[in-house]
Amino acid sequence: MNRLRLLLAATAALTALLLQATLVAPLSQPLAISLPAVLVACVAMVDGAGTGLAFGFVVGLLSDLGSAHPAGVLALAWMCVGLFCGTIATQHSLWRDAVAAGFACGAATLAATLLLVVVGSGGATAFGAVVDSVPAAIGDAGLALALVPITRAFLRSERLRAPHPVFTDLAVSATYD
């Protein structure tokens, strides 16, 4: 079961990175809408902060190494997305989770850009990042609206369920039982 979860996580991460570079980024220019970040948020919403933390770090590092800016920036940002979304997930409302995911991703992109401004790397500008952050967050929320049901369906299936019950699962069963 664990091997299957790892395989699926790797596939999902790679798919998100490829779709981001070939479809989402070109079509959403110049906004910084990020499909991998939204994926991290959605996974964390279902599987909790621990999974979100690790998944966000790995996906972020892969994305970092594949681009021109210093490695570690997106790893740090998306790790925080996983951590944050894992702790605030409700599991009840699709809309609330999607909006929370969108704004967490928007804030993470803003933070990553500001970090790049601080270390003086690449073409980051603080003003542009702040101006673009709200529309980018709305775009992220739109992606999350589509991704949250998919990740829920996958991660709650019998074969992909987390090996140990995560905290949010307990909260849900306590409410429904």
Binding site: A21, A32, S67, H69, T109, G122, A136
Partner: peptide
Amino acid sequence: VIAFGPGAGFDWTVT
């Protein structure tokens, strides 16, 4: 052009 910078907005690069 086959891809735009993964971090659109802060990487003005294309592949």
